[in-house]
Simulated scan of single mutants.
Amino acid sequence: MKKSRILAGIWMLFLVLAYLVSASITIGIAAVATVLLCFFCFFLSIAMKNKVTCYFEVPDMAEKEQQVYGKLIFENHSLLPAGRLRAELLFQNLLTGEKEICHLDSMAAGKEKTETKWSVCSNCCGAIRISVQKLLVSDMLGLFLTEQKLNISDTMIVLPEMKTVEVQVGDSFTTDWESIQYSEQKKGDDPGETFGIREYQPGDSTKMIHWKISQKLGELYVKEPGLPVENAVLLFFETAKLTGDSRTSDQAELMEKLISVSENLTEKGMHHKIGWYDQKKEQLCMEEIDSADNLAQIIHGLLSLERKEKTFTGLQEYAQKYQEQPFGHILYFTAEDPGNLADLFAWQCSFQTVRPGEDVGILLI
């Protein structure tokens, strides 16, 4: 637009000087016509404001490193022509946070649709959100410009690459995967299992009195109930960003490992859960996986998980809210240094961290 205005100014200056020198009627008419044309372009740009819309044609999914193509369709709802159209597109991988901006140019006559092709290629799996940030509409000469703020977006899935994973599980768990274990370190509220014996205290339920021991020792003793621990696996995916040390591709690599482990457990007929902290909704999420269909249904959501800078991890949030409903095994998928997080779960389950760049052959004990 700046270039067009400079050229128009030079042209107008030339006509004025030529008219002053020659006093030619033809040059005078050309100068007046130029001024009228500029006024026409100005009013045209005003009239075209909010008269042009656009929408996408986006492929549903793609493979990693695959060049895929889509379309952005412009629709001019006015009878007047839209001289120049420029859309600013933002491509964002929600999982990794990677962003790329490109511009698409087009033209559209009155009451006409026109389309422009775009392409994208991603080296990482994830949900690619394609959005139009703004649309610039100018007159035919490019002298005047109107800007439309838009909120148009669509999503394309870049499928994860399945890793070769062999999950080994101890015999005590494979025989009865859905049975219940009890913590040996912490009491609970399940009267069906005794955690320990202690002296009676005021307020204790009489139902918990251990009559045989009380009769033998001559004092009242009560049974402390056990804490049930599910004999199942929790795959927890970390979405908090505590430091800036990790690479953008780390989240994609971890997601591929998580989905591969989940798929392997499903093939073995082992029910498990996938957990994460949704940074957008600010809440913990848990999904039970007992079949390949369950896993397929949530893959889109998993690939759309956004990472956010926080002062606490999602696993710490889980430890606070689900402390009374522990799992037998926790696999923690994180790009961050787990520090002493394992100590939070040492009393109740086996805990293992899965990090980027590490082998995914996992032994559950």
Rank of each mutant, 00 (worst) to 15 (best):
S119C: 11
C41Y: 02
T239I: 05
C121Y: 06
S106V: 04
G192N: 08
Q185N: 12
S122H: 02
K111T: 11
T155F: 05
V120P: 01
Q297P: 10
Q215I: 15
S153H: 10
E178W: 12
N151E: 12
I27Y: 02
G226R: 00
S350I: 14
M286Y: 12
E253H: 04
N76K: 01
I259L: 15
F91Y: 03
T266Y: 09
E57D: 11
K321S: 13
T114S: 11
K149E: 06
S249M: 08
Q297F: 13
L37K: 04
G203F: 08
L341Q: 09
C41P: 01
I209M: 08
N123G: 15
L305N: 01
G339R: 02
L17D: 08
V165A: 11
L143Q: 00
G361A: 15
F333V: 07
H300K: 14
R307Q: 13
E267L: 14
D245E: 15
T266I: 09
N76C: 04
L341A: 07
G83R: 00
H77W: 08
F144W: 00
L284D: 02
R84C: 08
T116L: 09
A33L: 09
C121E: 10
I73A: 02
V52M: 00
Q352F: 11
N151I: 08
E230L: 14
E75F: 08
K163M: 13
I10T: 06
D293Q: 15
G192A: 05
L265H: 08
R247F: 13
Y318D: 02
I274K: 03
K281P: 00
M156K: 01
L227C: 03
K321I: 10
V16T: 11
V158H: 00
Y200I: 10
N93M: 01
I289P: 06
G9N: 00
S122R: 06
E98M: 07
F56P: 02
M255H: 04
L242E: 03
T53C: 09
A232Y: 06
C102E: 12
L37P: 02
G361D: 15
D176P: 07
A62R: 04
Q133Y: 06
R5M: 05
S246Q: 13
R307I: 09
N294K: 12
Q297S: 14
G244P: 06
Y332F: 09
E57W: 06
A18E: 11
L135M: 00
L13C: 10
G269W: 11
K212M: 09
L72F: 02
Q352H: 14
L136Q: 05
E199G: 15
L227M: 10
F173N: 12
